[in-house]
Amino acid sequence: MNTPSASPADGRVLVWDAPVRVFHWLLAASFAGAWLTAESETWRLVHVTLGYTLAGLVAFRVVWGLVGTRHARFSDFVRGPADIWRYLRSLATGHPEPHAGHNPAGALAIVGLLVLAAATAATGWANDVDLGGEWVEELHEGLATAMLVLVVVHVAGVLIGSFAHRENLVRAMVTGRRAAPPAEAIRSARRWVAVLLVAAVAGFWAFQWQSAGSITGATGQAGVARDADD
């Protein structure tokens, strides 16, 4: 029988499962890589691959937000304007409301990032297949910039939250553990789901690389054939 995972010595309990943490860092790395390679034709394959990876990660997070562990579910942390405002006021007074999982303000940023990531990936695909013309490319760039701004806001919020709660929230997203009552602990880290997620991403990257190599090889052979005919 599974029991909630807690560390009585320091009062930290397992709050965020492995899939949530792996998703978080894969999303951050994929967006950073896609942003850095956006203007380079040499790195176009990497840019496109990371863009599609973003789309897949968002799809996974939506599903996991419905069927995942307690604090991974949207029903646990997505709140309305009144709750967000109350949390922000408590933060301003220096006595922030405790939340074992994501706080209401952080939840707003998370939902915004998921929406922007999905929209950015969708417009990137449309631009990649020449669907929609120049306005799609401009929209894609605008959405990517908006996502970058929200990422900066999110990071600032994490730093402010870490100071206000006197807890390293970045470390918590690595270990999954936060200072919270034992009743808030989840029963399992679901590491096998995280392993499957990493395997799926790695498999997709390998497929993209292999497909690009096959296309390049076929193009080179066609060029040699044309030279021979000439």
Score class of each variant (00 low, 15 high):
195 V>F: 14
195 V>D: 10
54 L>E: 00
41 E>K: 12
60 F>H: 05
37 T>V: 03
171 R>I: 06
213 G>A: 10
135 W>S: 14
31 F>I: 01
187 R>A: 15
215 I>N: 12
159 L>H: 04
109 A>M: 14
186 I>T: 01
85 W>Y: 14
101 G>S: 01
230 D>T: 13
33 G>P: 02
158 V>Y: 02
227 D>I: 15
109 A>I: 10
82 A>T: 15
7 S>M: 10
132 G>H: 08
2 N>T: 12
160 I>P: 02
78 V>I: 12
52 Y>E: 02
190 R>I: 08
157 G>M: 11
134 E>L: 08
165 H>I: 05
140 H>I: 13
109 A>K: 06
180 A>N: 08
149 V>E: 03
107 A>C: 06
228 A>W: 15
31 F>D: 00
13 V>G: 06
179 A>N: 01
120 T>L: 09
93 T>L: 15
134 E>P: 01
169 L>T: 01
132 G>S: 10
84 I>E: 05
43 W>M: 08
164 A>Q: 10
67 V>W: 06
66 L>Q: 06
41 E>V: 08
39 E>Q: 14
127 N>G: 11
223 G>E: 15
219 T>K: 13
129 V>Q: 00
222 A>I: 08
105 A>G: 07
48 V>K: 05
44 R>P: 00
174 V>N: 10
39 E>S: 13
146 A>Q: 07
22 V>W: 05
135 W>A: 13
28 A>K: 02
86 R>Q: 15
128 D>N: 14
137 E>M: 12
204 F>D: 01
185 A>M: 04
204 F>W: 02
147 M>V: 11
137 E>D: 12
52 Y>V: 03
35 W>H: 03
15 V>D: 03
160 I>W: 09
201 V>T: 09
159 L>Y: 11
18 A>N: 05
111 V>F: 00
148 L>I: 06
